[in-house]
């Protein structure tokens, strides 16, 4: 093969798609918000439990493609225990990582999230990876009833 699908579908992504972490409704969530990508029908709901401004617990449910499910799974892992300010900062860095022409970012600081960097090369799939992130952002700034990528 002259290409490597592993750039996009890395083991981490395949694994998080098959066995998503923090999957399921958080019964005592303080906040929840649905994100929807009409293009491919991805529909995820994000739940968070806050202690002051710390994300004490976070989960998601719904269905979507491998990229959106893995991204949500990885995101919830990364966000647990973070302050809302830190979450906002990671959101911004991640957004730059996926969409900047030449992101001046150190992949190492993203930890496992770096597995999603390959999405950069698939413009039609960036919305899949960013759906849960936009949902989290909307949830934290409290200005949305639902999030749509279209």
């Amino acid at each position: 093969m002259s290409f490597d699908m592993k750039d996009l579908y890395q083991d981490v992504i395949v694994d998080h798609n098959r066995s998503p972490r923090n999957f399921g409704k958080l019964e005592d969530a303080d906040l929840s918000l649905e994100g929807y990508n009409p293009l491919c029908g991805d529909r995820l709901t994000l739940y968070i439990k806050l202690n002051n401004d710390i994300i004490n617990d976070i989960s998601f449910d719904g269905s979507g493609c491998a990229i959106s499910v893995a991204s949500a799974s990885l995101m919830t892992e990364a966000m647990k225990g973070k302050s809302t300010k830190e979450a906002e900062s990671v959101f911004n860095d991640f957004h730059h990582l996926l969409t900047d022409e030449e992101p001046d970012l150190d992949l190492e600081k993203f930890g496992k999230l770096a597995a999603l960097a390959g999405v950069r090369d698939y413009p039609s799939r960036i919305k899949c990876a960013s759906l849960c992130w936009h949902t989290l952002n909307g949830l934290l700034d409290g200005s949305h009833n639902s999030i749509s990528t279209e």
Binding site: F3, C40, C65, A66, I67, R125, C128
Partner: peptide, 22 residues
């Protein structure tokens, strides 16, 4: 176990153009 959108992307990498979605 494979969402249609993932099928579409993988097929495109093989030069195969199909449609995925509703």
């Amino acid at each position: 176990g494979i969402h249609p959108h993932d099928i579409g992307t993988i097929l495109d990498q093989h030069g195969v153009a199909i449609r995925t979605g509703h």
